[in-house]
Nucleic acid binder design. Sequence first.
DNA 1: GCAAAAGTGTTGGAAATACACCCATGT
DNA 2: ACATGGGTGTATTTCCAACACTTTTGC
Lengths: 246, 246
Amino acid sequence: MASIVKGKEAKSIKSLLDIQSEVKVINRIALSVDCVIFGFDENKLKVLLIRSDLKKFQGKWSLLGDLVDPKEELDSAANRILKQRTGLDDVYLEQVRTFGCLERHPAGRVVTVAYYSLINIQHHKLKILDNELHWHDVNDIAELAFDHKRILDSSYEQLQRRVQEHPLAFSLLPKKFSMRELQNVYESILDTKMDRRNFRKKFFAMDFLVDIGQMEQDVPHRPGKLYHFNYSKYEKKKKKWVGIDF
Amino acid sequence: MASIVKGKEAKSIKSLLDIQSEVKVINRIALSVDCVIFGFDENKLKVLLIRSDLKKFQGKWSLLGDLVDPKEELDSAANRILKQRTGLDDVYLEQVRTFGCLERHPAGRVVTVAYYSLINIQHHKLKILDNELHWHDVNDIAELAFDHKRILDSSYEQLQRRVQEHPLAFSLLPKKFSMRELQNVYESILDTKMDRRNFRKKFFAMDFLVDIGQMEQDVPHRPGKLYHFNYSKYEKKKKKWVGIDF
DNA sequence: GCAAAAGTGTTGGAAATACACCCATGT
DNA sequence: ACATGGGTGTATTTCCAACACTTTTGC
């Protein structure tokens, strides 16, 4: 292994300069951030992809990513990528995990930190000017450039876990939404069907939905009530979770 | 932002060489791995710490970490650190998340990938030769070098979540263990008290524990039966989880 | 015989599930 | 009038929490 390792083995107390030179010597790893941007439209969970800008992967789709600047926070890099591509900030954005396989990038050692984000496609629609950028059905993606399929799968799994314990779904919806739309989000993300009555009962019992006294417009059937999610009430009531379940 | 960003904005198709030179230019971030090694002893959850080898933090305890070699996988780096410090491999080891604050390391920009590991202190006891290495009660740690307290907190939270859905606890115990020991592990990790009868009922109902027909020895009270965990049976029965709960 | 922990069942309440009918709107 | 989804209540089952006494061993 690298000489640094042996240096530490010797357990000498090191000066800052010692460490700084170590960092320079070993500094042959590049760091990037890749964003998995989920959206919801036409009752389907979507992910935003772009054509790879690398010849080797020409024609393949890839996640939105960029190298991290040495003076840039990781979270800032993820937010920057999101902002550049969608014009949005102040959205839900969460680190997934880091992918560092030796062979994941053809240009050399590039370790990437994956983030996922949830955005409301309605708010974002006008801002995409890039026609190499498209929404794809999450369940209709067979292959991506690099190891991006693995990153997507991992992010999707994390989304599925988190959405069951945190009110993420609302980030995918407009401020006002119907119960049907809400249920569609859950059914799409979890890839399951739920009983409509039990679903409503559950959410009404949680008591975080506010009936805003408006109805759906222009639907070809009886219009439903519109609600919004009361985040501040939720923040106060967050619950603990103790149990063993596997 | 960095010129790389503008380059990508222009959406030109890039050659491998273009990217390679970008990687070199921007290559001013060092990557490390820090391991949070949990153990269990004297009915307490412990974490393995070492004295910082950096003058600035002299006297402070820190996690076990090292820079990642450009030719080394992240998981391998974590395993290497574990092996070097404890002599153990083939143990449960999992990535937590990546910490990349600009100011987290005095030597410059060092982004670190945190891993946690669970080891059985009994197996490991003989192999520590380094007297600057000690087990500390997890709940008795006020301050650590670098941002290692945050990394520890984050890892501990992840451990608490995972232990409730996966059979991690058995990695902290000897192959043969009593129900009391098992319950102690859960109570320590989750920092809670559980009803003994309900605890047993739950585990016996899962049907992954095998009564090996032996009893505890040398205990100053009625000895309990010893069990082991049937991993292969567990692997077959893993369950899915669908619900909304927040 | 005393201290200490092992071993064991039942019951009540809460939560999740399954399930069917009438209502309001657009066409 | 009919098609579409909105809106509602109840019965059943399942899971979890609470709870106390007898047994075995070491000292």
